[in-house]
Amino acid sequence: MASVFTKIINGEIPSYKIAEDDNFYAFLDINPNAIGHTLCIPKKEVDKIFDLDEETYMGLMAFSRKVAKALEKTVDCKRVGIAVVGLEVPHVHVHLIPLNAMSEMTFQHKVSLTEAEFKALAKKVNAAL
């Protein structure tokens, strides 16, 4: 059965898309730790990051870096943190989290945005790419 992320890639579930290319997709996390919390995923559904072939792994890191640089340009933060946990969804995903405090990296601190705020932020970050 397809993961929730595969359903997002296929357009079966809506998302606030930041970036997309032939192999990867980036979108705003709908339950964000901080404003701008973004997920970067390979379009190829693989459960564990270290099970990716080396080319896909390196491509995901390069894609994530590009998105992180755009986040730094558009979201007020000291830096963009990165995390790969992989327990909630069986599809490799990289969390990019704009940080101003360590608490934003704990996955216990959450922020709320309206649909309009999500859309505006996605558009702004995409423009910075």
Rank of each mutant, 00 (worst) to 15 (best):
T38R: 00
K110G: 00
D51E: 15
L39M: 14
K48G: 06
L28D: 05
K17C: 10
V111N: 09
L87W: 13
I35S: 05
P14A: 13
L121V: 12
G59Q: 12
G11A: 09
H93Y: 09
V67G: 01
I97C: 05
E12P: 11
F63A: 05
T106I: 01
I9V: 15
I18Q: 04
M105K: 02
E117I: 13
D22W: 08
V84T: 14
A70F: 05
H93G: 06
G11I: 05
A101S: 15
C77P: 07
R79A: 02
D76E: 15
I97A: 04
A62F: 10
R65V: 00
H95V: 06
V94A: 04
R65Q: 15
D76R: 08
E115I: 11
L87P: 03
D53N: 15
I30L: 13
A120N: 13
F118A: 11
T6S: 15
K78N: 14
E45C: 07
L39P: 06
H109M: 06
E55H: 10
M61S: 13
V85R: 11
I18C: 08
D22M: 11
S64Q: 02
M61N: 13
P14I: 10
T38M: 06
E72Y: 00
K48P: 00
V46W: 10
H95R: 08
E72M: 08
P14W: 09
V85F: 13
S112P: 00
A70G: 12
F27V: 01
P14D: 13
G81L: 00
I97F: 03
I8M: 14
D47W: 08
F24K: 05
K48A: 14
I13E: 07
V89F: 11
E115W: 00
I82Q: 12
M58T: 14
K7H: 12
I41K: 08
N100E: 13
E88W: 02
E12G: 12
E88F: 07
A116V: 06
V85C: 11
V67W: 03
K110C: 01
K73A: 12
V85W: 08
H109P: 01
M105Y: 09
K73Q: 12
K43E: 06
T74L: 01
S103W: 01
G81D: 03
V4R: 08
K78F: 04
V80H: 00
G59W: 09
Q108S: 10
R65E: 10
E20N: 10
E104F: 03
A116P: 05
V46L: 10
V92H: 10
I18F: 03
Q108I: 06
I18P: 01
E117D: 14
I82V: 15
